[in-house]
Design a protein around this nucleic acid. Structure first.
Length: 320
DNA sequence: AACGCGGGGCA
DNA sequence: TGCCCAGCGTT
């Protein structure tokens, strides 16, 4: 589920995504690179991979028809209890609850539940509450779930909730106690560290750059990016030892700051040229020489996409 | 600059 | 089973 305010920016994206992958079959048979390409900039790239895998499972195990049994939906990658409930109640009018961030906030205020929302105890409490609250009639469950999410998204918002216009204010315990503003109990924040890396941007004699596919787990999983080395490394030596090629340093681009969940990444792009005899050595299934202006259907992290654009602009700028 | 999202993966 | 993780938009 997305925050209400994010929906407007995401809708054009989904329209494009749906145009490219209009049905399960199209998505299932697409290459994962193509799917990631159309997901570029949205973040949480594991979601795109899960969506793709789910389509393949629906295609192979459910004859291309989206399953309507809770356990089958839950078994799809990327779908947990809440999302399964959302699909079955909203799309198929079955009686299952949704417990997303919005609903969770409404409940913790309505019942004045304090303490860490994500603790096992509170999770059980919230699931138990919402399971008892959801109407047993499927059509009513859909309306109820939608209403709960709408209240959370528009009235019972995280900061400065609009209690005065809330349709369920008369029975809200947090409002009675005057504690709506301080619930849900904020989780303790973590320090976000800073990490600095060098992105090694290798050019071959034909002006193409080297991209490599990142591991499917971790940051930018499955996306294509530049090789990386630690900031204070001798980059030419690093190319020799890590990549087995001789490369000549050309120049550096201004550093880029990019925020990720648990750290702030400071990227220092360095441009190098690989000798003609070595450029073929780098080719593999997960490494490709690409023209900066024609990367093709690959998923790219936002900063990598920006760097490629920048390189392309510089190349076509006669002043450079 | 801080925060939260719904779920997966790994001790 | 409890924890840690992701990339973006909003505030």
């Amino acid at each position: 589920m997305l925050q209400q305010t994010q929906v407007a920016t995401v809708i054009p994206f989904f329209n494009r995504f749906l145009k490219r992958f209009p049905d399960v079959r199209t998505l299932a048979k697409a290459r994962v690179d193509t799917v990631l390409h159309h997901w570029t900039g949205l973040g949480y790239y594991a979601r795109a991979r899960n969506l793709h895998r789910a389509a393949q499972i629906i295609q192979s195990e459910h004859a291309g028809i989206f399953p309507v049994c809770f356990d089958d939906v839950l078994a799809l990658p990327g779908i947990g209890k809440s999302t399964a409930g959302a699909i079955l109640s909203l799309a198929f009018h079955q009686s299952y609850p949704i417990l997303d961030g919005n609903v969770r906030r409404v409940l913790t205020r309505f019942y004045a539940i304090s303490g860490d929302v994500s603790s096992v105890k509170n999770q059980e409490k919230l699931w138990s509450l919402i399971q008892h609250l959801v109407p047993s009639k499927g059509g009513s469950a859909a309306a109820f779930n939608q209403a709960m999410m709408d209240i959370g998204a528009t009235v019972c918002i995280r900061r400065k909730p609009k209690c005065l216009t809330c349709p369920i204010r008369s029975h809200c315990q947090a409002r009675a106690l005057g504690s709506a503003d301080s619930l849900p109990t904020p989780r303790k924040s973590r320090v976000r560290l800073r990490r600095m890396i060098t992105m090694v941007i290798l050019f071959d004699p034909r002006g193409r750059v080297l991209l490599e596919r990142r591991p499917s787990k971790g940051v930018w999983g499955g996306l294509w990016s530049f090789p990386e080395c630690v900031l204070d490394a001798d980059i030419e030596k690093w190319c020799e030892s890590a990549l087995g090629v001789s490369a000549t340093f050309r120049h550096a681009l201004p550093s880029i700051k990019h925020g990720l969940t648990h750290f702030m990444l400071e990227i220092h792009p360095a441009l190098l040229t690989v000798s003609a005899r070595d450029s073929d050595k780098l080719l593999s299934q997960d490494r490709e020489w690409v023209r900066p202006e024609a990367v093709g259907k690959k998923g790219l992290p936002v900063p990598v996409k920006n760097i490629l654009n920048q390189i392309d602009i510089q190349k076509n700028d006669p002043d450079r």
